[in-house]
Design a protein around this nucleic acid. Structure first.
Length: 388
RNA sequence: AACUCAUGAAGCCUUG
């Protein structure tokens, strides 16, 4: 039983839901009735892979095995269907849940919130609001998450005044906006370049008794970075330090990324050093950003040196790190160097992905040697890689 | 144990 579970979890983690499902077959053959945990795990695996028909198949399997799907099972499916753009198919599930007289099956807060999020993701906020009404009708009051999700949707759509009005709406429902509520709002303003408003929210949330956290500040840093306002971005970093909020690795990475995009490797490097001085250890992402900074200034060798620097700190460069450096060589037309790195990836056990392949193909075509993509294509086939 | 909301990395082929 436990061994089966471990097997299943292993396959699911490795994103091989088909193999996980095979374990279920084995269990049945061995006369061990798959428990709900196992079935849920497999179902989850299919959902994460976006294979919703298979996931729904597991639901049927549960029923035939006499295993009662509970609300969380349905929730997983609803989320998956939403991500697959099949929200319409959730109505059947919701009906089944509502029809149940088992409290464990009936839709819960998460069910509705997942639905709300699904509709919001496809920009159908009106549908999302309908779900709000529906949940009240079934005796479940919307919570902070429900409202945060709505705020996010309006924010994304650029309807910032509507977003703000949802905040008052939730307050009227005796719900206190939390860190995330303000986080979503700040993000929305940043996305639309309204940095003044975003900054003002920091003070506003304080007056509301919610202390701005590191994520809020990081979001604002990112906002300035996207507007290419590096001085302001840096000021936010200093402001947070002054405000008693410790910048984290993401704060510095975000700032560094701004310099990377600007092609200023020296400034990027300074940020990395500053981060170390602040006692924060750069992680793989941080180094990848620095690699990008060197790449954008065509300093491929400096970028490549980072691989060793990372290893010294027992950090393992990943596919993004490699692809970044590789693209540098590609853009310089040095395809031998790019291929050297590409082959090196296999040796260190970092399998290339679609981005890597595309970068190389692009590089060869730029270098006017399209026939050399042969090795890459065969490598792709051998590893069973298909463009994601 | 798995299910809902905010922050950082790869020249990206639904945005000019």
């Amino acid at each position: 039983h436990d061994q089966y579970m471990e097997l299943i979890n292993g396959y699911v983690e490795r994103k091989q839901p088909a193999d996980a499902e095979l374990v279920l077959d084995e269990m049945e053959d061995d006369g061990a009735l798959p428990r709900a945990v196992c079935l849920n795990a497999v179902l989850n695996g299919w959902c994460e892979a976006g294979r919703m028909d298979e996931a729904l198949g597991v639901l049927e399997r549960m029923k035939t095995l006499g295993c009662q799907p509970i609300a969380s099972t349905y929730n997983t499916l609803i989320k998956g269907l939403g991500k697959a753009g099949r929200l319409a198919d959730t109505t059947v599930l919701l009906k089944a849940m509502l029809a149940s007289d088992n409290a464990k099956v009936r839709p819960n807060l998460r069910t509705f919130n997942t639905l709300i999020n699904g509709w919001c993701e496809v920009g159908k906020v009106d549908e999302a609001r309908r779900v709000l009404g529906m949940m009240r009708g079934s005796g479940i009051d919307p919570d902070v998450v429900s409202y945060n999700t709505l705020i996010k949707a309006y924010g994304k759509a650029g309807q910032l005044e509507r977003a703000e009005s949802i905040v008052t709406e939730m307050e009227n429902a005796y719900l206190r906006p939390n860190e995330r509520t303000y986080g979503v709002l700040v993000k929305s303003y940043c996305e639309h370049g309204k940095m003044m408003e975003a900054m003002d929210l920091i003070d506003w949330m304080r007056t509301k008794g919610v202390a701005p956290n590191v994520t809020i500040y990081n979001t604002i840093i990112q906002g300035f970075v996207q507007k290419r306002q590096m001085i302001s971005a840096k000021r936010v970093l200093e402001k947070m330090e002054g405000g008693g909020v410790q910048p984290d690795v993401a704060s510095f990475s975000t700032l560094m990324n701004g310099w990377a995009v600007a092609g200023d490797a020296e400034e990027a490097r300074k940020v990395l050093e500053g981060m170390k001085e602040a006692g924060i250890a750069p992680d793989v992402e941080a180094y990848s950003v620095l690699a990008k900074a060197y790449s954008r200034s065509a300093r491929c060798e400096d970028a490549e040196v980072l691989l060793a620097e990372m290893t010294e700190q027992t950090l393992e460069p990943n596919v993004v790190t490699y692809t970044t450096i590789l693209s540098c060589y590609c853009s310089r037309g040095q395809m031998e160097a790019a291929m050297r790195l590409f082959r090196g990836m296999d040796e260190v056990g970092v399998p290339p992905n679609g981005y890597t392949y595309r970068t190389l193909v692009w590089g060869f075509s730029e270098a006017k040697e399209p026939w050399k993509t042969e090795e890459i294509l065969s490598h792709m086939e051998a590893s069973g890689q298909l463009p994601d």
